[in-house]
Design a binder for these strands. Sequence first.
RNA 1: GGCGUGGUAGCCAAGCGGUUAGGCAGUGGUCUGCAAAACCAUCUAGAUCGGUUCGACUCCGUUCCACGCCUCCA
Length: 472
Amino acid sequence: MTGIEMIKFFNTMDRKLEEFKPIHPNEARMYTCGPTVYNFAHIGNFRAYMFEDLLRRTLKYFGYKVTQVMNLTDVDDKTIRDSQAANMSLNDFTAQYKKSFFEDLETLNIEPAEMYPAATGHINEMIALIEVLVEKGYAYQADDKSVYFSIAKFPEYGKLAKIDLENQRSGVRIKNDEYAKDSVADFALWKAWDENDGDVHWESPWGRGRPGWHIECSAMAMRYLGKTFDIHTGGIDNMFPHHEDEIAQSEAANGCTYVNYWLHCAHLMVEGDKMSKSAGNFYTLRECVEKGYDGRELRWVLLGAHYRKKLNFTFAACDQARVALNKFAELFARLKDIKAEGDGSEAEEIVLKAKHAFENGLADDLNISEALAAVFGLQHDANKILNSNNLSKAGAEMILAQYRKFDEVFALFEVDAVKEEVVPAEVMEMAEKRCAARVAKDWATADAMRDQLKELGWVVEDSSDGFKVKKI
RNA sequence: GGCGUGGUAGCCAAGCGGUUAGGCAGUGGUCUGCAAAACCAUCUAGAUCGGUUCGACUCCGUUCCACGCCUCCA
């Protein structure tokens, strides 16, 4: 069993690599900004969830007990707007996208968080938190009946994003006069009902309305993880204002540090550009699956670059992922065929080398490239021993066991998965006829049939003990 | 305007002040009736101009280019 060793993370708060020291020994409590459930999540969203999966799996690999809370934003401008457009109740409307979100997580083999609290289930906690802020003088109800957080009352505002509000572009998009807020930068904690909200509203000490977006994360994180917890993750674009606002309201209310380690994931690009609907490079996970890529291939691609670097998603990369995964599958099959006697000592060195490189990579702020290099390195080393016929069954088992360990974090190899492709009877029949032609050394017929199978979308590969049929 | 990130071989992508990153593609080979698959080998870069140094892809500065955030987009 791998013990806990030093793990370093890049903390956005001070922009430095820091050794991870949890509040509770051997335990990591983390909060993750989850989806707004108004549509299918796209692959950019999943890059962030994939990073968080890598993070939680790595922590578990190193022996930490992980408690991860991921919120579901099921009430906001977009969910209200789109549920009305769909002529559905807010609950019914968001329920379908919550469901699809969990299906997508499963497709990508993303390990479930311990809790998925929904905003609409925690209105009371949010109201209670806002009440504290009002009592302490950090929040006020404006003429428009909404309750705002007063940034002027929290001097540390901007410490995460390193934003100095004095130097910000002002007046470009916001006409100050249109707002009832004391200051443009003040953000809504409670939004007073207006007719656009329809029947979506809750009662509160400030009248009917609904919570602002930021307060939900603070309220739910506090409820399930405590006033101070270890790790808060999210996309880089949520750093400001969302996470900054979370800090302000949480620390103002509690008088203590909200989060010890802030980890932010960079954006996903598509074919070199920012993903956008207008550019036509906007993909949901489902669309990628429809294009024929499976969850493991997409997982490989989304995991492919360090989380703090922009990742360029391309379908060429998906094809490469397929090739790579096939080679590993091939290796596992070869290893499982080994029968030779021996104590396995011939594999010890290469396995240990790979294990150390893998762990060093992960412990260094989740350096996925280093970890992957270790995984490929073991593939290469294992093949060399295989080719020299010096590998014993015990050695092969040792290597396979190491890949199972790798998979605790990568969840890509599925060392023991048996993937049986359903080959249609007519394809199988033709392949068998071709095999007979080969046995009869009728190469012309055999080659013609191979071409025919190819046209049907199947490739046939000969081997010493027969043939294999695979879908193209 | 303010703050910030990055530019590495055909493509993707790391570490590192001097010693092979890794993957994909390509090329050569093994295997095969021919293929395919797989395996082995190989290809060896650091936007620009300066500086520091015995030595820089790695440190400092310049220029150029790309990108992100600046009120609710992971």
